[in-house]
Amino acid sequence: MSRTNIRTIFLLTACTLTLWSCGGAGGEEAENEDQFTEEDASGLVNEGEKVVYYGTPSLVEVASIMESSGAEFTPELLNDPEASINYSTNNSKALNLGVYGADLAYAAMFKHTQESINYLKTVKGMAEDLGMSGAFETELLATIETNINNRDSLLDLVTDFYWSADAYLQDNDRSNVAALIIAGGWMESMYLACNMSSISPNNGEIKTKIAEQKLILKNLVLFMEDAAKGDQGVIDMNEKLKELQKIYEGIEITQETGVVETQESGGETVIANETTVNVNNTVLMELCAKFGEIRNEIVK
């Protein structure tokens, strides 16, 4: 093969890889368009180039934070599993798969077995609807069903379920769907937290946790920007997140470095840092109204 041919092949390959990884403008039904994702970037970057990731909220971690802040389980707040048949577009299915995932994590965290089973079935059905049946090993679902009474095992398996879904979507160049699932899940978690806060107005811990989500939101917006790459559904959702960010500007968070203690035996570091969160009730009410508005738009 001549040098010219080799050069042509490399140029064409580079162009093809670029087109393949960057994708184009998308619309409501453009879920299959290619995306240049965080994970994709890791495989295609030039040597020496830094890869930046933005941590996304974990459904189980948010549910755990709410549970430890003394919140109570209120099943009426959750999205009705029966409503899953109403979601006809891929974008609404993806957002609501996140919503139901948050409901599943919440029900499992508070050891509500029957609700967990109902939400598990809904999540499974919606994942199949989104063409993700290949994401889950049959054994995983069977294991979830047999561990339904063991909270820690169940939460572990729920985490595994969503990890498999995310990995499957990344592998199939559908990171826009993954982004909508993550955003929908966080929105439902915050909707639940706000309602728990209004049910227990004297629980300052929940209010602080809602206020602290300002930091999570910052990373989520940047993550969505990266994942969007022209997909209108992700861009629209991110605009809503930015509206929340504007309201969050009314909450002041000051972070100070504290004493760092590493155990002599090794293996663990405790960071005694100081964070001051100025929880303004008026801003909190405005935030919760916005969370409710966006969440209700998603589940309608």
């Binding site: 970057v45 020496g48 830094k50 890869v51 990731y53 459904l59 971690e61 602290e212």
Partner: peptide, 26 residues
């Protein structure tokens, strides 16, 4: 419990990554 995603992938020697995260009290 895994926080939802894994970071990284197919990397080259000398590669640097940066992950922005929030660590919560409790």
């Amino acid at each position: 419990m895994l926080n939802g995603r894994m970071y990284g992938g197919y990397m080259v020697q000398g590669q640097e990554t940066e992950l922005f995260i929030v660590l919560s009290a409790g």
